[in-house]
Write a protein that binds this DNA or RNA. Structure first.
Lengths: 176, 176
DNA sequence: CTCCGATCATCAAGGCTTTGACTATCTCGC
DNA sequence: GCGAGATAGTCAAAGCCTTGATGATCGGAG
């Protein structure tokens, strides 16, 4: 039985909340509730951990890292493609690149064949930065993953992919 | 074999990225990489879907919903407790409550026994708002969860909890 | 009783995100 | 060829987040 409100903490609140809500007897699915709550909490913790431990000390933000990562692997790209591959809006990429350009990590140039488009590319400093940051990033990913056995890791990936293939993710997959 | 950069999309980029990075031969764990990438993408998609489909149309943000949700279930609480239970910083709660108070959903009052503390409570309008929003929120959670069978849902929750109990989440769990 | 360190809330600066509007440019049908 | 509609990038307003400082209050040591 969940604690009383006075002694709850971040973790036990999930149990408490599920208990309270389902006591109402309404059309609430406690398993779906716990799934979403737990998924969101794990991801928040992971992003906070990696961002504050790996990227901020190097002068990067998590979103900045994502843009650098995409450009690092998929070469010079138009801003629109960066937005698609990183899952951000074009406006967000534009704003983010202001910072990355100011810091000398990314360069903007007009696309050859299209006067509207802008081509984004890593500068030498950007390449150096992402190479270093990614090694530390993956090292931290390995610490997170080490909480699970190899087979568990693969099972988790499979279940997350199935979630991404489900009906609810439909709208998100179509977002450009 | 992953596509060439020109034909990549949000989903196939993950395969492409893993292929490119591991080709480098460095000390990179592709499974940990895929795990974190997939986890982050699923959660982003879910938050975007629920926020834009459920909360924004009702005049709430996802973080605003979280604060209302905590206050709804755990009664009037001091701002510090709300921060702990919702996993936000005290400064973030303070800023968020400015909006919620302006919108007439939450009220601030000085705590009885401590002149420094502020007690937060839902207004009648706040109760009405969160009651309605939560039903729609859970309905959408059920759509997401429906991509998995019941046993799969429980397995996923278990694996996520194990991740949260692992060594890497240590720092995040201690965050107040 | 008083002082000093701890704690609470808030503010300030800087960064990221969203939506919607706006400009420049491209492309296709006629 | 040319005009209409689509598209790329950017800007603006509003909101939320973080860290670090600030001011008020608490509580215990002496």
């Amino acid at each position: 039985m969940p604690d009383s409100p006075e002694q709850l903490d971040y973790v036990s609140f999930v149990d408490y909340a599920i208990d309270r809500v389902t006591a109402g007897g309404a059309a609430v699915d406690p398993v779906a509730m716990r799934l979403v709550l737990t998924l969101h909490r794990v991801t928040s913790a992971l992003v906070y951990d990696v961002e504050s431990g790996v990227h901020r000390p190097r002068g990067l933000s998590w979103p900045g890292f994502r843009v650098l990562f995409v450009l690092w692997l998929a070469g010079p790209l138009e801003a629109k493609r960066v937005a698609e591959l990183s899952g951000m809006s074009r406006a967000a990429v534009s704003a983010l690149v202001n910072t990355l350009e100011r810091d000398g990590l990314v360069s903007r140039s007009r696309a050859e064949h299209d006067g509207r488009a802008v081509t984004l590319a890593l500068t030498p400093g950007g390449i150096e930065s992402i190479t270093d940051a990614y090694l530390a990033h993956n090292a931290r990913e390995q610490v997170w993953a080490s909480a699970l056995t190899g087979p568990e890791q693969r099972t988790l990936i499979g279940l997350l992919q199935k979630l991404m293939d489900g009906p609810a993710a439909e709208s998100a997959r179509r977002r450009t």
